[in-house]
Design a protein around this nucleic acid. Structure first.
Length: 200
DNA sequence: AGAGTGATCATG
DNA sequence: ATGATCACTCTC
């Protein structure tokens, strides 16, 4: 059973979407074939009050525009001059909220992932970080603003797996120490015991 | 623990 | 036009 996630999924509260995204599949149809992975780690960004969010204070720039799109669109950007970060916008148009996809368990197209990430030594190194999974699946600027509800190349999919609350760990988000008290919010979620998460 | 990397944004 | 910043990864 494979079912593409529809608009309503992304219009739920951002923290709900962040948790429900665990166990869903991120799929990229490329010229070299399908590359996909099961989502095992996410983070919620809930601007404009969330100091860690790019939409903090209601700021709008050319870069963060996609964070304000209607739920289900891709907000992708470059950090540290090297690494793409894939987010999915949530809430209605005009709301600066999104979910960062932080780690995947590789499923399809593993040979292609290995070619895309020659430095990865093991299967669990292929996509266990936000920059790594974009390399592995081949995501970059050309996916900016893409609507995953309708696009023919990129989408998210339910394959019938659901987790109990006790299978999900909530902890503080990574790499946002500048966000003061917001850095402490337990808005990073991952599947308990998964060897494919970015950090413990 | 430290370096690398360059687009983006605020400032002037 | 310039300089600081950065939701990371790799190598030591």
């Amino acid at each position: 059973m494979k079912r593409r996630l529809k608009r309503n999924f992304y219009l739920q509260p951002t923290l709900t979407v962040s948790k429900k995204l665990l166990g869903k599949y991120l799929v990229h149809r490329t010229k070299k074939g399908i590359i996909s992975g099961k989502i095992v780690e996410t983070e919620a960004y809930i601007g404009p009050q969330d100091k860690a969010s790019h939409s903090f204070g209601g700021k709008v720039t050319p870069r963060n525009l996609a964070e304000y799109m209607e739920g289900g669109h891709i907000y992708i950007y470059l950090v540290y001059g090297m690494y793409w970060q894939l987010n999915i916008s949530t809430a209605g148009q005009g709301k600066g909220e999104c979910v960062l996809i932080r780690a995947l368990e590789p499923t399809e197209g593993i040979q292609q992932m290995i070619k895309n990430r020659p430095k990865a030594k093991k299967r669990h190194d292929l996509a266990n970080g936000p920059g790594k999974l974009c390399q592995a699946l081949g995501f970059n600027k050309r996916h900016y603003g893409v609507d995953t509800v309708k696009n023919k190349e990129v989408w998210l999919e339910d394959r019938g797996q659901n987790f109990k609350k006790s299978d999900i760990i909530a902890s503080r988000r990574i790499g946002i120490d500048y966000a003061e008290e917001w850095a402490k919010k337990p808005w990073r979620f991952y599947i308990k015991g998964s060897p494919f998460v970015s950090k413990l």
